[in-house]
Write a protein that binds this DNA or RNA. Structure first.
Length: 124
DNA sequence: CCTATGACAGACA
DNA sequence: GTGTCTGCCATAG
């Protein structure tokens, strides 16, 4: 009951955040999860993208992993995601890597590098 | 209830 | 840099 509502809320917020990622920028699964209220729910962000991208018109291509890489496998979306990002102005090399120092979306008031350190100390 | 599975992430060798 | 391991947590069977 209560937990179920919390999950729905997380999912709703995650979608809003994903929609807010601007063209030419990318966000990480963990970043979206943290902004949506649960820094440990990166896998749930991936699940949301997998299940709702189509229905909710999410700019799914703008979400990549924390290593700055495309997580989809070759032959299973990798090529399309790379193509879409490049079309939006995000440089993706042949291995599917993006330079987060340049292309990571940093919403006003957030600094991911600092936020990561903060969360690490907090959860240690 | 239990196990397996992920478009993940961090730590460490 | 790579590969492995562990933690994570909703979902599916």
């Amino acid at each position: 009951m209560e937990g179920e509502r919390r999950d729905m809320e997380f999912e709703r917020r995650a979608k809003e955040i994903i929609k807010a990622i601007p063209r030419g920028k990318v966000a990480t699964y963990a970043q979206v999860a943290a902004l949506a209220g649960n820094h440990r729910a990166a896998r749930q962000v991936a699940r949301v993208l997998h299940s709702s991208s189509d229905k909710d018109r999410l700019p799914w291509q703008r979400v990549i992993n924390s290593r700055g890489g495309i997580s989809l496998k070759r032959g299973h979306g990798f090529e399309q995601q790379r193509r879409l990002l490049i079309k939006e102005g995000v440089c993706v090399n042949r291995l599917g890597r993006v330079d987060l120092d340049i292309f990571l979306w940093e919403p006003v008031g957030t600094r991911m590098a600092a936020a990561r350190d903060f969360l690490r100390k907090l959860t240690r």
